[in-house]
């Protein structure tokens, strides 16, 4: 299976690049010639990616979450897969390039530096840890996609306000649609983060003797969760619309990324496996 893993490791970035290329071509051309073909291309790429992830898990006897380059390939898949689901659910096909770009970047970095790790800490072979990390990654993919749609919303909002009726105006879906996409992906991201946090809280104390509820990563994730939760409740109860919701999503995303980075870089934590 190793040759197949190595081959896919090389092929996957090219497949994501090709998919991204088709989405860009379709976005730039009004005739939308690849409207259906691009979806099939993304599906095939994701299918091969699933095979690659499963093959790695079986071959190396641990889920591919033991270092950042393994996590990057899972992240590339999670973003691509989340977008694919969103496109299927909403049938909004014109925004893929802005999302798939993240998959391309993560997969390229992963493919360049990933190693065949057979010897890893025993804790990293735990299934609950796998679920905890994968749901967290999918959750972060959700809020990342939400932020991308938020950004697209702001760009289109500005273009319409300034009466600039160019490519962005012609090719993006309506502001209401972008807002809806942003909110749906945020909601999905939030639910997955909740699942990840729940698994973590139940499992971590039994897995780590030095576990602490005051762990910086735990605290920062908790803060992000509370901010998003409060935002979602406010949006639904106070009926927030348009720019206000989008600004909230973008601020939430910035805070989430900042807190993630700070807790990883500055603080010492049991929550590190490398």
């Amino acid at each position: 299976m190793l040759p197949a893993i190595h081959a896919l490791n090389i092929i996957l970035p090219f497949l994501y690049l090709a998919t991204f290329g088709i989405y860009v071509y379709d976005f730039m051309n009004e005739k939308a010639a690849f409207s259906n073909a691009k979806r099939v291309f993304l599906f095939v790429t994701l299918l091969l990616h699933v095979f690659y992830l499963l093959a790695r898990t079986i071959e190396f006897n641990h889920p591919p979450i033991t270092n950042k380059f393994e996590i990057f390939t899972v992240l590339a898949f999670a973003i691509g897969f989340s977008y694919f689901l969103l496109e299927l659910l909403t049938d909004v096909r014109g925004t893929g390039l802005f999302i798939i770009l993240f998959s391309v970047l993560f997969q390229i970095v992963s493919s360049l530096f990933i190693e065949d790790l057979i010897e890893v800490k025993e804790i990293l072979r735990n299934r609950l840890l796998g679920m905890h990390v994968i749901s967290a990654l999918l959750g972060y993919s959700g809020i990342t996609i939400s932020a991308v749609y938020g950004l697209l919303f702001l760009i289109l909002y500005k273009e319409i306000k300034l009466s600039k009726f160019g490519l962005i105006f012609n090719r993006l879906p309506s502001l209401e649609t972008l807002e809806r996409l942003s909110f749906i992906s945020l909601l999905i991201g939030f639910i997955l983060l909740t699942i990840s946090i729940t698994i973590g809280i139940i499992w971590l104390p039994s897995a780590f003797p030095n576990f602490s509820y005051l762990d910086p990563k735990l605290l920062s994730t908790g803060v992000v969760w509370i901010i998003y939760g409060a935002g979602i409740v406010t949006k639904l109860s106070a009926r927030w619309y348009g720019k206000k919701v989008i600004m909230f999503s973008l601020v939430g995303f910035t805070l989430a990324m900042l807190s993630l980075m700070l807790s990883n870089i500055i603080a010492e934590s049991f929550h590190s496996f490398t």
Binding site: I160, S174, R180
Partner: peptide, 9 residues
């Protein structure tokens, strides 16, 4: 056409 770029439905 502009209205349709603002409202989805």
């Amino acid at each position: 056409q502009v209205v349709e770029k603002i409202f989805a439905n």
